[in-house]
Amino acid sequence: MSAEIKLSQSTAIRLEQARGKGMPEEELLKAIQAKDVSAFDAVSEEEYRYNEFFSYADEHGENLEEAVKDGYRITFNTRGGLGIWLEKAFKVQPEKDFTVGEGIVTGLQLKPEQAEVLAKRLASNWVITESKDVPAGQELTLKLRALV
């Protein structure tokens, strides 16, 4: 990847929602290339629909195809949005698998490869401040950069 692909938190949540609901990468890429909103009907949720997915990405210069192929970094994470993105990306549940507080996420247990993805995707306003080995992989603490 020559230049880092940046996506809004909203776009990243929708991409991970599609992946998490079993949309194969090839189908995801076909839908993006064709700008076919209806291809996302099966993975759409009331809170996260795809009606504005392509127009928003175009308007904000988000390269969806490259993001799917090469990865991306979220431009900015709110604490609530970070919790939702973690849920969609890693199939973890807030208050069960991790806790979101004021400027901190604690108790997040991920497999090592998931922790690596998180480190690449996490917006620069958050940092991983602690990582300890646990039977499931790693237990991470994330903090708002301003609080570190």
Rank of each mutant, 00 (worst) to 15 (best):
K91M: 13
F98R: 05
N77I: 05
R79T: 14
P94S: 05
G71F: 10
R79F: 05
K91G: 14
Q93E: 15
G81S: 07
T75M: 09
V92I: 12
R73D: 03
K88A: 10
K96W: 09
P94R: 11
D97E: 10
G80S: 14
L86H: 03
I84W: 04
I74D: 02
I74R: 04
A89L: 05
G81A: 05
F90S: 04
R79L: 08
V105N: 04
F76K: 14
E87Q: 13
K88D: 01
A89R: 15
Q93M: 13
W85F: 12
D97Y: 08
N77P: 01
E87A: 12
Y72S: 02
I104C: 05
A89P: 00
G71A: 09
G81K: 07
F76H: 15
F90H: 06
G81E: 08
G103Q: 13
R73I: 12
E95A: 09
G71D: 09
E102P: 06
I84E: 10
L86W: 09
K88R: 15
P94V: 11
G71R: 09
P94E: 08
G83M: 04
T99L: 09
Y72G: 00
F76C: 07
G80P: 00
F76E: 14
P94C: 02
K88L: 02
I84H: 07
P94I: 11
V105C: 02
T99K: 13
E95R: 15
I74F: 13
L108Y: 05
G103H: 11
F76T: 14
E102V: 13
D97C: 07
W85S: 02
T75S: 14
F90T: 02
G83A: 14
G71V: 11
K96R: 13
L86C: 05
T75L: 15
E87V: 01
D97Q: 08
V105R: 01
T99D: 10
D97T: 06
R73S: 09
G80C: 01
F98V: 06
Q93Y: 09
E87P: 00
V92N: 02
Q93I: 10
R79N: 14
A89N: 03
V92D: 01
I74M: 10
L86E: 02
G101P: 01
L86N: 04
G83P: 00
T78P: 00
N77A: 07
T75A: 13
R73G: 01
L108T: 06
L108G: 02
G81Q: 06
K88C: 03
L86K: 08
T75H: 03
W85N: 00
T99W: 12
W85V: 04
G83C: 04
R79M: 07
Y72N: 06
A89C: 08
I84S: 00
G107A: 08
E102S: 11
I104D: 07
T106V: 14
